[in-house]
Nucleic acid binder design. Structure first.
Length: 1035
RNA sequence: GCCCGGGUGGUGAAAUGGUAGACACGAGGGACUUAAAAUCCCUUGGUCCGCAAGGGCCGUGUGGGUUCAAGUCCCACCCCGGGCACCA
């Protein structure tokens, strides 16, 4: 009987659904285990083979834990708010809710193309999700609680003394009693720190409502303020710092500029220290923890105030020990005091500089890091220690958003200050012994201070401590810890997100009462901003509460994902985001699996919200996930080409000569092409891969002399698109005409089967191998080579799991993805190896069935019809297993059990293969061996396991079977074959009983004639015997 | 520049300091078959010697070191991937 994956998988998927096999109940007497996957954004492109990698791994762990007696929560849902659905809505007018529903449940898109649906695709993989617990962040029943948490944040302030969030009412009570005195007010604002003027209790009571609310805004964890934001004009919205990469938006790559505007923000900076400290106890990969540490960016130092007239400039420095080396002060162009300190004679120049700096985008500023620019304000500040006059400059190397937006420049100890000083001819004072300040600044942290003053002769660390003491004594500054982390921009000028439950009365934001939640997204006529630039929600009719206008921005994509893990615990609760009982039972996530690209976005907000909910006593733990595993990316293989044109200027050299063109990269000559003399007026067009820079050498065929060399600097970056399969062959679309013009468009001309390394002969219309010599005409040639990159629809290199499942089945795909290599490692998708895992499943299946091959050959002329064959070909006996068979079984159970605990799935699949091969050659068909094997395989290949389990006569699902325990007694060996090595090099094998002690082994080894022959009569210097390991003879 | 990972056959990859290359793909050879598919068996790191059985040498990015023994530990360097970056 054959292994029919399609029939088996359809049968069991239907049965699991009907029986609710994977439903999880909250209260049981079994211990809990919570396995969570990062939920996907349901895009129209559907799943590709990269997505399930993590899901398969977590599913194996979830199933294994279930077999091991745990009550396992393993849910799945959708992060269903997001930009693509909204962009699609803008283009087609289809409501994002509809697009989202179709993308999840399947159907047809607006253009009538079929959409498989995430749910259907996931179901086909055989995952053990409890779908009764599905969540969608765009579901009002879900986002009601996202809004509710926002209201809690709005209703909270961070008490720096107690290091926790508290209700704002307690702060108000404090103000009424004592005013703003004391530590209570030392809260970061998240931007450049602003000074909240102190006030007494009496003053507070005399404040009007508006003033009180303005003051409270400085303390709320969700607050509205003027803030520098990352404004992306192309997307028409503000972005958080982690959504901007290299000055462009992470999604879409649109330019981003800094802009000051009213903006909802979350005060994540208040949690900076706790987010940092909490990392130590987490079982997360070191690289993610490091990424978070870098992102939080804690630095210890001091603030120093430099008096200037009645005023002062405050700077932050990590090196107060270099204070005596200060030769100027630099302000960021955006610094609020720039205007104030500019003298009249300098005003024109300073304003021009500030304006040009402001108008340059972030990207331009980053690109011009090497360029020094700045301008003198004309003012001088006083050095707090020496009283010296310190000129105040403006320079764009100082960032407005970090520290105080101003630096004390120490050219002798800071390379950036040094370059600025060199460029403008400012004095450079040596601060450390042995520094050559003519050449560069000395940034060593183990140096000795040499600048004049009380720090002279001290080592840097001691000097820092001393300098802070002196500053504090003088009242000119104090020790200070600064963080790079900025508060998170929380408002998005977009439609498809959670509405922020805030209304405005006299321009002051007030929270919507809880009873009004969820505040549902209104209907709008268009998903675009209004004519006067208001967000789409401003288009809604009656977007108000009791006549007061409602907030028009929506929450960012990461709002729902910051707490969704709690909702799975109790997904249908209408009274609370989750009941205390459910939270108490499920606690933290025990294993969280997802991509490392969320290191500084989602994973930081996820921890922040958890800590906040903990502070306000809604949950009983302050970290969301105990263990985190990052699955690697499955990459796609793309094929590129690039263009070189050899135009008129070069053409003259080629005329009337026979040439040889050598195509080379760093590894040498890839190809040689003979070029006949030609008279084409346009010159040559050569199209080449962009994988590595190529070089083209033209050689005179007759003399061998090199005529000219051309580098491939004209990149066209043409992508060969593998978009569809026709008759099992990949069809590559490419638009040559638009390519020749400039911008690539993926379409018209269809080329089939692009080889990995090839030249496209335009004239012949064929591909030929790179090694073939061929003549070049004036027609273009392409050289194509593969390049590995991220798999995504926009790169046209997607492999769809549905196609693989149709051919091999989900069990094969699951095994193959695990077999590919360590989970954390990224690897290109390559279908070539999949036959191996498919063959393994067939072998495994055949262990349970009579050998039909022999039956066939014996009676090939009158073989039974397939239907009768199918009836009962199970061939399993109840005979007692042999020692060898038990050894294979228990070795497999041991390896697989240990490997699942380590999440080393590739090696467990290998062990299954070994077992199947060995049991196959032993012709083992004994129930006592095969039955435990079925259970052990079930987490990896659940469908085939269920089918075999049923055939073995079980009425209940294999998922209910207890995990088979391995026992050491079956693994004991009687003897061991010792590798005998000479000076560490293995030369022969000798077998001795395990029980034989080291001394006897040594004697017998030395008595061995072959060993004697190798010793050539000489006595060994030393003999090392490691029992059950090795014998090493030193000669 | 700084901080994390990682460099092993033609390919994906194994390997508590103890026989490097398990397992799989691919390739080559063979069996069965009219044929194909499927299945099974053998070979497969490089290189040299030998008709053969067999044997020698080299080999885990490079160079040193520790050790009876190093892919694994230590030092220096090179390369690849990721994160951070005029962050004071």
């Amino acid at each position: 009987m054959q292994y029919e994956h399609q029939r088996i998988e359809e049968k069991w998927q239907a049965k699991w659904k009907a029986d609710k096999t994977y439903r999880v109940l909250n209260a049981t007497d079994r211990p809990k285990y919570y396995v969570l996957d990062m939920f996907p954004y349901p895009s129209g492109a559907g799943l590709h083979v990269g997505h399930p990698l993590g899901y398969i791994a977590s599913d194996i762990v979830a199933r294994y834990k279930r077999h091991s007696g745990f009550n396992v929560l393993h849910p799945m849902g959708y992060d269903s708010f997001g930009l693509p659905a909204e962009q699609y809505a803008i283009q087609t007018g289809q409501h994002p809710a509809q697009t989202t529903k179709t993308n999840i449940e399947g159907g047809f898109d607006k253009e009538g193309r079929p959409v498989a649906g995430y749910r259907n695709q996931l179901d086909r993989m055989g995952f053990s999700f409890d779908w009764d617990r599905e969540v969608r962040t765009s579901d009002p029943a879900f986002y009601k609680w996202t809004q509710w948490i926002f209201l809690q944040l709005f209703d909270s302030w961070y008490d720096a003394a107690q290091q926790k969030a508290r209700p704002i009412s307690e702060l108000i009570a404090c103000f009424e009693e004592k005013g703003s005195a004391g530590q209570d007010t030392s809260v970061l604002t998240g931007d450049i720190e602003q000074f909240v003027g102190g006030f007494s209790a009496a003053e507070w009571r005399s404040f009007d409502e508006r003033t009180r609310q303005m003051v409270l805004q400085h303390f709320r964890l969700a607050y509205l303020s003027d803030a520098w934001v990352n404004w992306c004009p192309a997307l028409g919205t503000v972005l958080a710092n982690d959504e901007v990469k290299d000055g462009v938006s992470e999604r879409g790559g649109h330019p981003v500029e800094r802009k000051r505007m009213k903006q909802w923000s979350l005060r994540i900076t208040a949690y900076a220290q706790r987010l940092l400290d909490g990392l130590d106890a987490l079982d997360w990969s070191e690289s993610i923890k490091e990424a978070q540490r870098n992102w939080i960016g804690r630095s210890e130092g001091a603030t120093v105030r430099f008096p200037i007239g009645e005023d002062f400039i405050e700077v932050f420095t990590t090196r107060p020990d270099t204070l005596f080396g200060v030769s100027f002060i630099t302000l960021a162009p955006e610094h609020v005091l720039v205007g104030k300190f500019t003298t009249p004679d300098r005003r024109a120049e300073v304003e021009a500089y500030v304006n040009s700096a402001k108008n340059r985008s972030e990207r331009e500023r980053q690109a011009e890091v090497d360029k020094v620019s700045g301008v003198f304000t004309g003012s001088y500040a006083k050095h707090p220690f020496t009283g010296a006059e310190v000129p105040v400059w403006v320079g764009d190397y100082v960032l407005a958003g970090y520290g105080t937006g101003a630096v004390m420049a120490v050219p002798g100890g800071d390379q950036r200050d040094w370059r600025f000083a060199k460029h403008f001819g400012l004095p450079i004072i040596a601060v450390t012994e042995g520094a050559d300040t003519e050449k560069e600044a000395d940034e060593r942290k183990d140096a000795t201070i040499c600048s004049k003053g009380f720090l002279q002769g001290l080592k840097v660390p001691q000097a820092i401590t001393r300098a802070i003491q002196e500053l504090e004594k003088l009242g000119a500054g104090e020790g200070k810890i600064n963080f790079r982390l900025r508060d998170a921009a929380f408002g998005r000028q977009r439609y498809w997100g959670e509405p922020i439950p805030i209304y405005y009365q006299d321009g002051i934001p007030y929270p919507l009462p809880e009873s009004e939640l969820p505040l549902k997204l209104p209907e709008v006529d268009k998903f675009l901003p209004t004519e006067d630039g208001e967000p789409p929600l401003a288009r809604a009719a009656n977007w108000s509460y009791n006549g007061h206008p409602l907030e028009t921005t929506t929450m960012p994509g990461w709002a729902g994902s910051s707490w969704y893990f709690l909702r799975y615990m109790d997904p249908h609760n209408a009274e609370r985001f989750a009941s205390p009982e459910a939270i108490q039972y499920w606690q933290q996530v025990d294993l969280y699996v997802g991509g490392s690209e969320h290191a500084t976005g989602h994973l930081l907000y996820f921890r922040f919200w958890t800590k906040f909910l903990f502070d306000r006593f809604w949950i009983t733990f302050d970290e969301p996930a105990r263990k985190l595993v990052n699955q690697g990316m499955i990459q796609g293989v793309s094929r590129f080409a690039e263009e070189i044109r050899i135009e008129a200027s070069l053409k003259a050299k080629f005329d009337s000569r026979e040439l040889v063109l050598k195509v080379m990269d760093t590894s040498g000559v890839l190809n040689q092409i003979e070029i006949p003399p030609h008279s084409d007026a346009t010159g040559y067009h050569i199209y080449c891969s962009s994988g590595t820079p190529l070089q083209f050498e033209f050689v005179d065929k007759a003399t061998g002399a090199r005529i000219t060399t051309v580098r491939s600097h004209h990149h066209a970056n043409i992508r060969f698109v593998t978009e569809e399969s026709v008759d099992g062959r990949n069809v590559h679309h490419i638009d040559i005409d638009s390519w020749l013009k400039e911008e690539p468009v993926y379409h018209p001309i269809v080329i089939t089967d692009v080889p990995e390394r090839a030249i496209w002969d335009y004239r012949m219309g064929t591909w030929s191998s790179l090694t073939t010599e061929r003549s070049l005409t004036s027609r273009p040639l392409w050289v194509v080579r593969p390049e590995v990159e991220k798999m995504s629809k926009s790169k046209f290199n997607v492999v769809n799991p549905d196609d693989i499942i149709a051919k091999y089945g989900a069990d094969t795909l699951r095994l193959y993805e695990m077999f590919l290599g360590p989970l954390e490692q990224s690897k290109p998708w390559d279908t070539n190896g999949i036959e191996g895992t498919f063959r393994f499943l067939r072998k495994f299946w055949n262990l349970f069935h009579a050998n039909e091959a022999s039956a066939h050959t014996g009676s090939s002329s009158n073989a039974p019809a397939p239907s009768t064959l199918r009836v009962d070909s199970l061939h399993v006996t109840d005979d007692a297993p042999t020692k060898a068979e038990l050894k294979i079984l228990h070795a497999t159970l041991k390896k697989v059990t240990e490997d699942i605990e380590k999440m080393s799935f590739n090696t467990s699949v290998a062990q299954f293969m070994i077992a199947a091969n060995e049991l196959g050659s032993l012709k083992c068909n004994k129930r006592a061996v095969l039955e435990p094997m079925v259970i052990a395989l079930a987490p990896f290949a659940p469908h085939i396991a269920e089918e075999l389990w049923e055939k073995l006569g079980h009425a209940t699902s294999v998922t209910t079977a207890p995990w088979p325990k391995w026992s050491a007694e079956h693994l004991v060996e009687d003897s061991f074959s010792y590798p005998i090595s000479f000076n560490g090099k293995t030369r022969l094998q000798l077998e001795f009983p395990i029980a034989l002690d080291a001394k006897s082994v040594e004697e017998q080894v030395l008595a061995n004639p072959e060993v004697q022959a190798r010793l050539e009569g000489k006595a060994p210097k030393k003999v090392i015997v490691v029992p059950k390991r090795i014998v090493n003879i030193v000669v």
